[in-house]
Design a binder for these strands. Structure first.
Lengths: 211, 211
DNA sequence: TTTCGTATGTAACCTTTGTTACCAACCAGG
DNA sequence: CCTGGTTGGTAACAAAGGTTACATACGAAA
């Protein structure tokens, strides 16, 4: 399992051996669902390659983006769900090609006391997820949609490493929990201000975008 | 330390003995600040009596209510902060009289492996906090202010056990991250609909309120 | 009782966002 | 090349919420 090489620097050798023994490497394609609302979670995903998108839905079916998980990150919400045998409150979808190691839930608990590096990793993970959630709340509560849209595009750029964002106005509207017309309107303003260029299913971020 | 009696049913005896030995019982009055932005956290609060209010502030000084902690709950954000020696991203304020047990951070870690009941408590705590945050996001992202106001008043009633809410329109506006005028407007509508009665610094929830 | 600070009521207006409707552009499959 | 489904552009309007301004009411302290 060469893919775990990235993790080598933060885990002790014995733990890596256990991860290789008990972890299951799985591959997903764009749009594949890794976790879903109301489903029990029996393993914790540890992202090896690609990006995982975590969403929250309300009673009326509206969905909103919570955060992304990328390489060597993991979903601590899954973790605590596993230990408590609870149903998921969120949905996780592969964004592009994705590889992850699925850690069975009985090992999670065992390793916590056995390997300090695992415990630290889990705690750091909890902390990062709390931070992401707080950022999300801050964004929704205090920032206007145009700012949130810009932040969204920047995040997409960071994750993909490309300033050509592949997404329809529809998808963006969904993830920001608004309507397509509103997103089209705001994008058009950004284009008129020379920050971006609009194509079908693609948005090109120009140099002026970052300022 | 009689106040820890409530905790007896979920912790094993040896752990309770340790909590009594190393935990420090502290009392606070309304408005006292238990955690603050950017401050290091060296102990984890375990609420014994009263209610603790957890807030998040953005760069421009706007604050918004995240959730309340009440009896036998604890702030898992403080927990992971402790272990990682990080600064707080939130503020915690006493709402009315408050008693808590401060657990020193070195014990947190030690007990995690020593006492299964402690580990379970901590994990349950993480889970509950994630749920609260998700509820908060759902509320802000999908619900209009009038619904959020009603939910806010209900929560206040639940926590205080009284249908007479003591708060100024100002405070409510702060916690919902809006302006006083807007809250006054919405409250007046609720009063006109026979759901509540308005007094200075007080709001009486009528029977019709719950429907 | 007077006075002052705080709390509330209300109107008028503005901005942001949501909604509906319709059209045009694009693209894949026949 | 036609055709139907998806995507994006735009206008017109509605609704929610934010802002400003000012009046009034209350209650504690002098």
């Amino acid at each position: 399992m060469d893919e775990s090489a990235d993790l080598a620097f933060q885990f002790e050798p014995a733990l890596i051996a256990e991860i290789e023994e008990f972890g299951e490497l799985r591959s997903f394609k764009d749009g594949d669902i890794i976790m879903d609302y109301g489903k029990y979670i029996r393993m914790m995903p540890l992202v090896v390659k690609g990006t995982l998108k975590v969403l929250k839905k309300d009673d009326n079916g509206n969905e909103i983006l919570l955060y992304y998980l990328s390489s060597s990150e993991s979903c601590s919400m899954a973790y605590s769900c596993c230990l408590e045998e609870k149903k998921s409150e969120v949905k996780a979808i592969a964004e592009g090609d994705l590889q992850l190691i699925a850690i069975p839930h009985n090992k999670l608990d065992e390793w916590l006391c056995k390997y300090p590096s695992w415990k630290n990793y889990i705690m750091r993970s909890f902390n990062e997820r709390f931070s992401e959630m707080l950022k999300s709340i801050e964004s929704i509560a205090f920032h206007k949609l145009d700012d949130r849209l810009i932040a969204y595009l920047k995040e997409k750029k960071r994750l993909s490493g490309s300033s050509l964002i592949k997404a329809s106005h529809y998808q963006i509207a969904d993830e920001l929990a608004t309507s397509r017309v509103v997103i089209s309107r705001l994008l058009k303003i950004l284009e008129n201000n020379g920050k971006i260029l609009l194509y079908r299913n693609e948005i090109k971020l120009l140099k002026a975008f970052d300022s």
